[in-house]
Amino acid sequence: MVDLKSGRAGGMGEILDVEGPYEVAPLGTALVELSANRPEIVGLTADMGRFSDIHAFRDAHPDRFFNVGMAEADLLLIAAGLAKTGKIAYCTTYSVFVTRRALDFLVIACAHSKANVKILAGMSGLMNPYGATHQATDDIAVLRMIPDLAIIDPCDATELAQVVKAVADIEGTVYVRSLRGKVPVVFDPEEYSFEFGKAKELRSGSDVGVISTGFMTQRAFVASAAARERGLGAGVLHVPTIKPFDTEAVLRFAAGVDRLVIAENHQMSGGLATLVTEALYDAGLHVPMIKIGIQHRFHECGSQAYMEEKYGLDQGRITRAVIDGV
């Protein structure tokens, strides 16, 4: 257990203490690359430019960048208005301010109008030291009930960059659980390619199957490798698109394993585990399942490592679930 005194609750929504390869601000880099030949792309933020990595776009296209002030509701309205003039509006703020403050505007002005608004939201899940006001542990649960809204939870810098580019060509409103700062590189960009609406079986194995989303997939890989060393075949199905949900791939994967571990940086209810459960039940398939995710409660302030260990999202927890089935 991380000791109270041992750490300060620091950072600003970036992944601190990244081990292994990483890329700095992949969101900004990808958006700049994409927008070079696409004049219809505009960028917006609600005073979260610096803390969302969109400043590279501002610097490349100052004429197409709008900081609307700290006004998240208006951010989505202005984006929806820009979309009505044929623009593709990329917006950044923190997840909580999308799902809480601006929800009405997201539902009607964006989703219902099928507005080309692409929301790159920061600090989704249990990702920051500011406590319940900033921890979007419920964003998927809230947003999955909104029709005509796509939800994507990328794993790493490679996938985030691909998603930033892909969403430009997905009609309508898309919500992306973005990652900022030093973002780990897990997938080889030469080998991995994000496909909207598709889950990817990245490791195969029939003893146990991990279904994961977002950066939890990196931990699923580590757990899968550890299981292999013990002679256990552990498959990994990565589900970057939460909505529309790839039911078919999930059923195929689940039918081929003895038991499942679901791993997500979200409350255990209302997110990936619920989607998987619904899919299995509807298909009459029963596979034993361990859920790894966030508890249904408000959380205190603490560093990411402290919170993850305390609330059971850390590597050790996943590895235990995969190997020991507990």
């Binding site: 000791d3 300060r8 609750a9 500011y130 006001t133 205190e300 302030c301 603490g302 305390k310």
Partner: peptide
């Protein structure tokens, strides 16, 4: 500090 009563907000 982590988990402290007096948080950053």
């Amino acid at each position: 500090l982590n988990g402290a009563d007096l948080a950053l907000s």
